[in-house]
Computed example of a mutant assay.
Amino acid sequence: MIIFFIVFLLLFIAEIFYFKIADKYNIIDKPNHRSAHTQITLRGGGIIFPIAFIIFCLFNLDEAIQNYWSFGLGLLAICTISFIDDVRTLSNKIRLSVHLISVILLLYFTGAFTLMPVWSWPVLFVIIIGTLNAYNFMDGINGMTGLYSLVTLSSLAYINREVVQFTDHNFIYYPILACIVFLFFNFRKKAKCFAGDVGSMGIGFWVIGLITLLIMRTGEYKFILLLSIYGMEVVLTIIERLLLKENIFEAHRRHLYQLFANEKKVSHLIVSFVYALCQLIINIFLIHSQLPIWAVVLIIFIPTGGVYLGLKWSLKKKYNL
């Protein structure tokens, strides 16, 4: 346990050190008419996630060099380009190119190129890049990214220890510790920092890598539902925007969590907690269910989708949106 305390302490110090750099070089998030916050806040606090991987490598050097080099290159590449994009806006072509390279490295790391047929590779690219962007879309209020990731990572840690071991335990514990440190500064009414693209993309990449490893190890595609709340929210919102003939690549405030936080003025912390709790309930059912995947999908998405659409319709009607 002492090693985890040391890692936690190192991550905490690293985050404080980053705050000083961000403050000196004015790396901030200025609220606009689409923002869910009203105060200028330090951006890029999610840099703690790639730092967590670097610390993981330092404490597990031989194993990291042998088994985690491709994952590390992909993670650092996507975090670097995301951090640059946090500071100055980059073109979509540059970002997408780096994302594509990172996903290739991720799929190599998980063994997907060996275990999956060639025709499925483009599908994997679309799913992973789409999920990464979903992580980015959902990073809009205090606590959302940290709490949701903590629930998913904790579920993966339980599966890894109690159901089937698909990776080294520390490879899950380190991002969990990073989430706890990040939440200490972010899960507040007035957040000390926001994750930024570097944070949402970084932890999203790590979580997706773990879920892909689990699926490759077990052949159970149901584990993609460990991100079902994010998936349902983003897919339904995209469909709504397409029906309204809106540009789905432009910033907006149509997510359900945005309606609660912005229009109904519900506390960010409560909204984030409810989202994480809903995913936790789904994960508990998912892990212990012996039903076929089609039944699991129906049981999860019919009630949650119905509640989601009902709440969204009610809020849009009330606020004339």
Rank of each mutant, 00 (worst) to 15 (best):
A36G: 04
R254N: 15
I21L: 09
Q66T: 12
L9C: 11
P303N: 06
F19E: 06
I172P: 01
T38N: 09
G202D: 08
K265I: 13
L244K: 14
L311Q: 10
P122A: 04
L183G: 05
C278Y: 13
Q165L: 09
I65K: 15
S267F: 07
L286M: 13
T304K: 01
W206G: 02
I3K: 15
L214F: 06
F53V: 09
V307R: 06
D23S: 10
S267M: 07
V123C: 15
G219M: 03
Y135A: 08
L298D: 04
F171E: 00
L259G: 13
I208N: 12
H288Q: 13
T167N: 08
S267K: 05
A178I: 01
Y158P: 00
T89Y: 09
V271Y: 05
L244H: 13
N283K: 03
V181S: 06
V307N: 00
F12H: 11
S120K: 12
S97L: 14
K20C: 00
I128P: 08
R95E: 07
S155M: 03
A36W: 00
K192L: 04
S228V: 13
F4W: 13
G143Q: 06
V103F: 06
L153H: 10
I238G: 02
P175W: 03
L105A: 02
A295R: 12
L213S: 12
S314W: 14
L177W: 06
F205E: 06
Y319W: 10
M116Q: 14
T38L: 05
I284E: 13
M116K: 08
H169Q: 14
V181R: 05
L156V: 03
T152P: 03
R88E: 10
L124P: 10
I282S: 07
V234K: 02
K318W: 07
V296T: 14
T80N: 07
L213D: 12
Y275H: 10
L156C: 03
T80W: 12
F19H: 12
I211E: 00
Y221W: 13
P292E: 09
V103S: 03
F273V: 05
S154E: 11
V207F: 00
N136M: 07
A134Y: 00
A77C: 15
L132C: 11
F182T: 03
F184I: 13
I47G: 05
I300C: 02
F273E: 09
L183H: 08
A295V: 15
V151Y: 03
I6E: 14
I284N: 08
T167C: 10
L225Y: 10
D168T: 11
I159A: 10
S267H: 13
G140C: 02
L90T: 05
I48P: 11
V123G: 12
E246Q: 15
G111Y: 10
L10K: 00
I101P: 09
L42H: 13
F185N: 04
F12S: 15
L280N: 06
G204K: 08
Y221R: 05
D29G: 04
G74D: 10
F56R: 04
K265T: 07
V164H: 09
Q66D: 08
L280V: 14
I51P: 11
G199R: 01
V181H: 01
I21C: 01
L147N: 02
I248C: 09
K318D: 09
N160R: 05
Y174W: 09
